[in-house]
Design a protein around this nucleic acid. Sequence first.
DNA 1: GACATATCTAAAGCC
DNA 2: TAGATATGTC
Length: 738
Amino acid sequence: MKELYDLNPQQREAALYTEGPLLILAGAGSGKTSTMTHRIAYLITEKGVSPYNILAVTFTNKAAGEMRDRVEALIGGGVGMWILTFHAACLRVLRKHAGLLGYEKDFVVYDPTDQKAAMKNIVKEMNLDDKRYTPAYFLSVISDCKEKALDPKQYLETYGEDHKTKIIYQAYTAYEKLLKKNNAMDFDDLLLNAVKVFEKDEAALLEYQERFRYIMVDEYQDTNQIQYTFVKMLAERHSNICVVGDDDQCIYQWRGADIRNILEFENDFKDAKVVKLEQNYRSTANILSAAHSVIANNRSRKAKKLWTSKEKGNKLAYYRADNERDEARYVAQEIDRLKTTDRRYSDFAILYRTNAQSRTFEEALSAREIPYRVLGGLRYYDRKEVKDIISYMRLVQNPADDLALMRIINEPKRGIGAKTVEKLQTLAEVRDISLFEALLDDAVVSSLPAKASKGIRQMTGVIQSYSREQENFKVSDIYEGILDKTGYRKALEEQNTLEAEGRLENLMEFKSVIYDYEKGDMDLALPDFMERIALLAEVDNHDENENAVVLMTMHSAKGLEFPFVFLPGMEDGLFPGWRAFEREEGLEEERRLCYVGMTRAKERLWLTSANVRTLFGKTELTRESQFLRELDKHLVDGDAIIEKKRSSRSAPSLDGYAGEKPFNPFDSLKYVKEQANDLLERNIPMEDFEPGDHVKHPKFGIGMVVKVGEQIIEVAFRDGSYKKLAIGIAPLTRYIKE
DNA sequence: GACATATCTAAAGCC
DNA sequence: TAGATATGTC
């Protein structure tokens, strides 16, 4: 296989090491996908392994698709190979074996919106007047549990019985019951239940163990406990497991990723071989060094340092803007300046910390007529109208889907309010039938007001007729039929507002999605279609060919690369966010995110911050990000640092505050001692404090004034805490540099 | 039941 | 600020 000679020695070593456990520590841009695809190709063409015996799991559909394409390009077709996301792989297992757990074969998959709707009902039912118990809170606890494979009972045992845990236990139990009743699984269930199948049915486990003699896992640093178990069980028999990951890019701990999985792979799998890919093929030397100077501040990481044979390239640029509009203006201006004829707009990416930041950039880009595309934020499939129509289609597939029915029972308006719904629900519960069946009862429907009963009959009629003859219709026919016959489209058209127009456009877009599927798959049945869209995500929609500047969060940018990258909002409190200061691990995760963001850039990298930023309606002075202070300043272009005239009110600049030393907020005491000599303590009335002033508190140490109000002064302390203190009462003294 | 107004709250988002 | 939700009014 001559292609193997395209790999560097380490990559080749990893690709050729096929028997036994293998950990590939692949730094950013080190050609890990190439290595993995070559490894698969090598297994098939040289070692004679059947594609049928290979399993490769990824986190996103996009990653899976890319890997599949590249393998197929190498070997020309790859039949029977599973290159899937974790969830899709588990779904396949469950479609075959879910009966074992008491599910029907055609169970549905609930996405987060469905989960929330389901949980909302439960919370309402439980009559919790307490504000602390929101659906979102319960769901996050439940998700946590499922990731650790704790059922409600085990949850209670693990966390002990008190008022709070009992309530959670109730909610969890009710939630599980509801899902089971609706023959539904949420995303977490897909993983959990697949593992349950393996635990319960030895024969099934053996079947997959025998089948998947070679297993590969991408982005291993982001696996959670249950994913780990899934992989471990499958690999137990043949131990031919190869995981690829980079502990420096673990940015999903907040949703359960367990970094220990990668840190302890060598203990988990005996005689594991470790290969490090440390040559970076993506970024210039300057960008790489800069990223390294930041990530090097993390304590818990495997020792490694990326290198490149590329030239140094441009230095990084840094711009401190007056405010967020100025920041966006600068970015747009830079894009205009560098967008020469040999460059495309899609060579530029703006990667921010929070979705809320996108708006100012959209405005600034529009002003210069620069085409752009925003990814993330509101997922396309989360839009109201799209959810509505999907609910209709789900009802066609399964009329017993109460949740879907609830969503659209009064959409378009049929004169069914909360009261009527409640009555129907009680009725259905008493008779132990589904809501839809309740709506088919003529006596019930006739008792409703004329408008409502007419609307209901029409709706149930449409759904029933398509439901009975699903096989005779194409998905697009069903879609069109629903829009027209339920009056959904008409209602939108009659609204005649800009908003309704947008919704109609989205519905058209959805139709073209359906057409696309039908083109690829002539006899795509409704259930197949529903399945595919259930596991779809927004980043999967990223189209490299579209000539537009890309705007997205740093999180979604993982795995992508761009010649020119902007990282805006480099301010303490925004990036890293305040929450990160609560625990050291939080800050380290933010730092990894910063590393991910920086290493997306191939040629040039801009960092920007705003001196004043309006966030959540409050306008405040900001302090430059800790990550800027950690950055090796020799790599930042001096000319690009546009010095602003700063009044005494302004926050300290890049060099002014922390000095040359990287600041670790957890060393605050030490810092106070070291720095105290330079600073003079002054007792001045607190009301004379201004944002940006350095202050000292006997208990919290040194901090900076963020905001001064009538009675309250807000201070960010160097130990990471953020306090609101009473003016005139708090023992706060001012620190000044002479 | 539908619509208007007041109140509240705020990260990131793979599948 | 803005969006989502709770409350009030016709």
